[in-house]
Computed example of a mutant assay.
Amino acid sequence: MSRSVLVTGGNRGIGHAIARVFAESGDKVAFTYRTGEPPADLLELGCLPVQCDITDTEQVELAYKQVEAEHGAVEVLIANAGVNRDQLLMRMSEEDFSAVVETNLTGTFRTVKRANRAMLRARKGRIILISSAVALRGEPGQVNYAASKAGLIGFARSLARELGSRNITVNVVAPGLTRTDMAAALSEDQQKALIGQVPLGRIGLPDEIAAAVRFLASEDAAYITGAVVPVDGGVAMGH
């Protein structure tokens, strides 16, 4: 049965792969993007592009109203939108720290809170947050990013306890190094060093992250909530 699915930050990378896999499965998919143009392949699949900056509460509200008018109330939310501003702590500005937390953690709070309203009424829903292996193991130069992504885990587990009785599941997927624009910005030496830490010895693919997200949104995962699912080639095992 076709569901109303919303993917934040669905215009590229992991979010793009997630939006595509749900659309190909027959769901009604909307995705947010902040800048640029919506990807042509998602438009061809019938996905609804919604321009939205999740750091702005008013824009989040307008985005939901657009999705609800076109697809109905959101039944599956994938909170994927995020940014990074990497720098060693001694050189990191307060603005760089706050901007990352504001988008990755507080922005997720805004999008999840707005979806929560309709899910509570319907007494069902799936919420999946995209965190990072960095949240579990740490990484030099990413204290702001790691803190924001680790915050999503506490957020999800607390919310899972709040909403479980209403048949709403809340889970986290924690990708490792994945073939995205963020990884492409790294030098060849940086990529080699990071891949060298991965037991499977390779970089992940966005479609592999999307497959885990799709599973958590399926009926097969109806008894899974508050879980953190690493899709990282084993890099953060044991955390």
Rank of each mutant, 00 (worst) to 15 (best):
D86M: 07
L88C: 08
G15L: 03
T32V: 06
L216I: 05
T103A: 03
N171P: 01
S218Q: 04
V100M: 00
R121P: 07
G36V: 06
A115C: 15
E44N: 09
A147I: 08
S93I: 05
V213M: 08
I224Y: 15
R121Q: 13
V198D: 13
G176R: 01
A211W: 02
T106A: 11
D220N: 14
Y64Q: 03
E75P: 02
G196L: 06
R110L: 14
E61K: 05
I54Y: 01
L129V: 07
L120G: 01
E37P: 04
E24A: 07
E75G: 06
P199Y: 08
D27S: 09
S158W: 02
L159Y: 11
G201R: 07
E95V: 10
L129T: 13
G9C: 02
R121A: 14
G164S: 07
G15H: 05
A221M: 13
E58T: 04
E94P: 03
L129S: 09
V5D: 02
K28G: 12
A217P: 03
G234S: 10
P38Y: 10
V229F: 15
C52Y: 00
E162W: 11
V170E: 00
L136V: 04
L186H: 08
R214H: 13
V67D: 05
L48S: 04
Q59D: 01
A222F: 13
G196A: 12
D207V: 15
I153D: 12
I130P: 00
V173D: 01
A210R: 09
G13T: 09
E162D: 14
S132G: 00
G13K: 06
L42C: 07
F155D: 13
G36Y: 05
G138C: 11
E95T: 11
V7L: 12
